[in-house]
Computed example of a mutant assay.
Amino acid sequence: MTPLEMLAVFAAGVGAGGINAVVGSGSLITFPTLLAVGLPPIPANVSNNIGLVPGSWTSAYGYRAELKGQLPRLLRLGAGSVAGALLGGGLLLTLPPEAFEFIVPALIALGCVLVVVQPKMNAWLLARRRNHHAHGGPWLWTGVFACGVYGGYFGAAQGVLLLAILGIFLDDDLQRLNGAKNVLSGLVNTTAAVLFIAVAKPDWTAVLLVALGSTVGGYLGARLGRKIPPLLFRVIIVCVGVIAIISLLTD
């Protein structure tokens, strides 16, 4: 990578870390950037996943006040996240590269749609508050497991999906659920990263740049993200997602 490309990847990592803390779709920034600097799709996805791990945990740390009292919930649901991430990461490594290049544009499109509809989704979740359950039951665990599979395979807008599932099944404040979402996303990313480090071939320069950027962005996003207009986040994410889809389909 040229110095300018390295700067672009680092900046994408900062943006992704901040977006993941608040919205949960940072891969729609970093993954297209890695494609743009010349990485093939699967190495780009593997490197992106590993690089976003530090940002996942700095964003979770930024929500530590909202996480108080949630340890039993996180232990129970975290098992589903880890199991799902192992399955999703395994699918990424065992399915042919052509399958990834075919599936990912659809997943990016789904991520863009979820980012756009998230405000209405949150309003809908608040309207259903009276129907929520104390512990979520097996359906919540199954949903978290499915999100883990999705996150281990690709993961764009994984956080949006997680927040929706948590909001449907749990009777709790949305900011506390967002903190739980950050922890569960961190478990998915970390589990998949360990798998990828063991058996895949990441681009370590890209990993380092995304990791440094996401670490800064994750912490700042958790601290300052609520002060940035959400609409600006969504416009940027959707534009980058559309560019990524075009890039993958015309490559």
Rank of each mutant, 00 (worst) to 15 (best):
D172P: 02
A192W: 00
C112A: 12
Q158K: 11
N189L: 14
I197Q: 03
G152D: 06
F169I: 05
F169T: 01
L174T: 06
G179I: 06
L161N: 00
W141P: 03
L195I: 10
V160F: 02
H135L: 10
R130V: 09
H133E: 11
G111Y: 06
M121T: 15
L162F: 07
T142E: 03
G152H: 05
V188A: 03
I197C: 11
A164C: 14
G152F: 02
V149Q: 01
G159C: 03
Q118Y: 08
V113K: 07
D171N: 13
A146F: 13
F169E: 02
G155N: 06
V149N: 00
F169P: 01
V188N: 03
T190L: 15
F154L: 08
A109V: 12
A109E: 01
L140N: 07
T191M: 03
A193C: 11
C147Q: 01
Q158G: 09
L140Y: 09
L126N: 15
V160G: 03
L184C: 07
N131K: 13
L140H: 09
A156R: 01
R176L: 10
C147L: 06
W141C: 06
N182I: 05
G148Q: 05
L162Q: 09
G152S: 13
G159M: 01
V117P: 04
R130A: 13
A193R: 06
L184H: 04
A134F: 11
I197K: 00
K181Q: 08
N122W: 12
D173I: 03
V183P: 00
T191L: 02
A192C: 10
L187E: 00
S185I: 07
A109F: 15
V160P: 04
D171V: 08
L110V: 13
R130N: 10
L125V: 15
A109I: 11
G179E: 04
D172G: 12
G179D: 00
G137D: 13
L195Y: 05
V115L: 10
A109R: 03
A156L: 02
F169Y: 15
G155S: 09
N178W: 05
V113M: 10
A109H: 07
L166D: 04
G186A: 08
A109D: 02
I165T: 13
V115N: 04
G137N: 11
N178C: 13
V144E: 04
A180N: 10
I197E: 02
S185M: 14
A180W: 04
R128I: 10
A180G: 13
L170N: 04
R130Q: 12
R130G: 13
